Amino acid sequence: MADALSEDDILEAVARHVGRPGQGPQLRRTGADITRLPMLDLCIVRCMEARTTRPESRPGTYDTSERAEYEGDLRDHPVDPPKDPEVSRTVELVLRGSVRTVPCGCDGGRQPCSRCRAGGRLRCDVGPVCPACEGVEPCTWCDGTGERRKDRAPSESAREKSAAGRTACVKCRKPRTACPECRGWGAKRCPKCDDTGFRVCPVCSGERSTAHDPCDGTGLVTLWTGGSVGQAPDRSSLRLPAPAPPLRFRQQAGRAGAWQRVTLGSAGAPLPDGLDPAHLTAVESALTSRRGEVARRVDIGWLQSAAVTIPDDPDHVFYVFPGRDGPEVVPIWSRRRSLRVAAVVAGVVVLVLLMVALV
């Protein structure tokens, strides 16, 4: 693991970056300012556990032997956490002595059919409209009702004319009055009920009853008290310092920095010695155990970096951090330069707007 950079190392790295190698001490004498920026990256994965009990049931005679048993209060039953706290799982248990198989209370595993109300058949919908008469005048005598129409009395010539091609009506029996296609019904013969007006219930197949769902037709139900232990990961992180340094510096330090790292596997594990004292309080608060926590994994990384300003270049802040092959330097525009550039851009925008207004 890399050692923290001394002030001499930091100034010499900046001197080399600005093309003045070997002049680190000179930068100190001319008023270079060094601000330490210890960086911390902490990620913690907690395995959080929740326990619940509930009454459970299954149809028929159900085998619960594949589930482990617990006694007394589920909170006191030991369940090992997963080896990897990022793994989610649920452990299903059975209260010892609670399993029993009892009669369902139905009629031998059957229940009245709810579709046909135990009638075994349903009223059939009207069949398709006759394509010849379209159901408008299926019979000139009874109009498909089976009784003599009273609304009008057609003349003898009209009756003879309308009788051409007609056949006997199956409802009123009058000859040469009905549509030859539907014979007075006004619809084609119903394929569902063969014109009986009723069809077999499709749910119970005419048996008037169906299997009782709660017992799956067995007449029995197995009851027990079930316990459920759910274990799921909960992730959180902590990154210091706050406010964070410029993004470009953080990206470069993340890729090329010689970070020191350690992984802690339990809540009582001691913190590493290399952490900056300014970070200890925040780290200890982030690692406080939570209710329901049964396991954890903590990944901690830290990097000693610094921000340097030099009077010879007030337009930049030089961020220095230990790299894998020595100190790395990332120059970032200073606040002074950023404000100056912003002012220039704003002036250009105003000038353009004035020119557009004058055109």
Rank of each mutant, 00 (worst) to 15 (best):
E156I: 10
E160G: 12
C201A: 11
R115I: 11
A168L: 05
S157W: 05
G265H: 09
E207H: 07
S237T: 11
R335C: 00
G265M: 03
V170I: 05
D9H: 02
W185G: 00
P112N: 02
D33P: 00
P154R: 11
T196L: 13
G184T: 05
H212W: 04
R16H: 15
L74W: 03
T225W: 00
H316S: 12
E207R: 12
L287R: 13
P103E: 12
S162W: 15
L37H: 07
G119V: 02
P131S: 12
K171P: 00
S266N: 04
L287C: 12
A244Q: 14
P180W: 07
G72F: 14
A68Y: 03
L240I: 15
T222Y: 04
K150I: 15
S162G: 14
P314G: 00
S6E: 11
E7D: 15
C104N: 09
A168F: 03
P245H: 06
R255N: 07
M1L: 11
S98A: 11
H279G: 02
G230C: 02
G206A: 03
I310M: 07
S88I: 04
P272M: 14
C113I: 07
F318N: 04
T222E: 08
V99G: 00
R28Q: 14
P25W: 03
P191K: 13
P270Q: 08
S6Y: 12
G144F: 04
A342Y: 01
V345M: 10
V14L: 10
G144K: 01
A258G: 06
D76W: 10
S6V: 10
S237H: 11
V203H: 00
S157P: 01
G274H: 10
V14D: 03
A306G: 08
R121A: 11
E284G: 03
E293Q: 09
V136I: 14
A68F: 03
P272T: 13
D76M: 06
R199T: 15
A13C: 03
D195H: 04
D216T: 02
V102Y: 05
T140K: 01
L287D: 09
V356G: 09
D107K: 11
A278W: 13
A267N: 08
G227E: 00
L264C: 06
P78G: 05
R296Q: 13
K161R: 15
D276W: 03
L271G: 05
R335Y: 02
H212E: 05
L287Y: 12
M355Y: 12
T167P: 00
V200I: 14
D213P: 09
D325V: 06
E66L: 06
R54P: 02
V94K: 02
D151K: 06
G292T: 09
E49D: 02
W259P: 00
V94L: 00
A164L: 13
R250P: 02
L11W: 01
P202W: 14
A278E: 14
L42H: 05
S228F: 06
R46S: 01
R46M: 08
T288A: 14
P154A: 11
Q111C: 07
V126E: 15
H17V: 08
R337A: 12
C116F: 01
D151P: 02
T210R: 05
R89T: 08
E12Y: 05
T196M: 06
P55F: 07
V87S: 03
R123G: 06
E69L: 08
E69G: 04
V294S: 12
E12D: 15
E293H: 04
R255W: 08
D107V: 07
T281D: 15
P322Y: 01
R75I: 01
